[in-house]
């Protein structure tokens, strides 16, 4: 084949352009640490990275929801634990004061304590968490128990999504305190207890032993439910956290450039660039020699 100067220049220019482009790509990868910068770099990997990004976002969503709900569930569980203790004391007083060896004065003192227990229990039932009143169902803006001990919340469930398509109830109903829809009304029972103690009504006290015990069990059951919710939320949070780490690692493997390989490519590209420059110089010097002769 007949070779002209223009052909040599064309080859030199084409080579120089190619190695310059390779050097730019290698430099960009080394500078950003990313294997895929634009969709056209690797459309399949880009789609996979995008899909992982969306999954990571959802996992963070689940984690955040579980963590937020966990705070209120912990508060509900500890509140119910305090309520259990208060009711245990009320039961203890009922049993103690139902025996014949207690004086009227003892029972009058106990009546005052039971009234205080009832007030404290009302305060616990009206505890507020991050989302409002804990035991009002979805009526989170109104105290679930009014001054008379009546329930003004509802039995609404507040679900939390802990995984794609999986939700769990994150709240405990205030009905555990009032027995609305079946069960003991603790505030009514405590009021009756205080009245019986104040009026030195021993048979009445004996009749209240069973209702007070049932009421206490009602709160214990609610506490167990809150504990179970807390456990599930904690477990969901752990699982989401672990899955999130796995997803982030998988994303990193796909999107991040392997630094050792990138710097090796950068060195090779730089070397190729230098060699190409030398070749171009050589071609130019050949042309000069031809003119000189």
């Amino acid at each position: 084949m007949r070779v002209t100067d223009q052909m040599r220049f064309n080859v030199a220019i084409a080579n120089q352009e190619r190695v310059s482009e390779n050097l730019l790509t290698a430099t960009k990868r080394a500078a950003t640490g990313k294997a895929v910068d634009a969709p056209s770099d690797d459309p399949v990997s880009f789609a996979a990275i995008g899909s992982r990004d969306a999954a990571i976002q959802r996992m963070q969503m689940h984690l955040s929801a579980a963590e937020d709900a966990k705070g209120d569930a912990e508060l509900a569980e500890s509140t119910l634990a305090q309520a259990t203790n208060l009711l245990a004391r009320a039961r203890e007083l009922t049993i103690g004061m139902a025996s014949g060896d207690k004086s009227q004065a003892d029972r009058a003192g106990a009546a005052k304590e039971v009234t205080q227990i009832r007030t404290a229990l009302m305060g616990l039932a009206n505890t507020q968490g991050a989302r409002g009143y804990l035991f009002g169902g979805t009526k989170t803006d109104v105290p679930p128990i009014n001054g008379a001990g009546g329930f003004q919340g509802n039995d609404g469930v507040i679900p939390v999504e802990i995984a794609d398509g999986v939700t769990i109830a994150s709240n405990e109903s205030g009905k555990a305190f009032t027995g609305a829809g079946g069960g003991r009304d603790l505030f009514a029972d405590l009021a009756t207890l205080a009245t019986a103690l104040g009026s030195n009504d021993v048979p009445g006290l004996q009749n209240l032993l069973d209702p007070i015990e049932k009421g206490q069990r009602q709160i214990v059951d609610a506490r167990a439910g809150a504990g179970m919710t807390l456990e599930r939320l904690a477990s969901a949070s752990d699982v989401s956290g672990s899955a999130l780490a796995t997803l982030q690692a998988a994303r990193s493997r796909r999107s991040d450039a392997d630094l050792a390989s990138v710097f090796s490519q950068l060195t090779q590209a730089k070397s190729a660039y230098d060699q190409s420059l030398s070749v171009t110089k050589e071609i130019l010097s050949l042309a000069s020699m031809a003119r000189g002769s």
């Binding site: 634009a38 969709p39 056209s40 770099d41 690797d42 459309p43 399949v44 880009f46 789609a47 995008g50 899909s51 990004d53 969306a54 976002q57």
Partner: peptide, 21 residues
Amino acid sequence: NPAEAFTGLASLAGLKKSAAD
């Protein structure tokens, strides 16, 4: 899903650009 659909759009553009390149 919605985010994947939008990523798919970008990926489709990338695929076309890559083929053109």
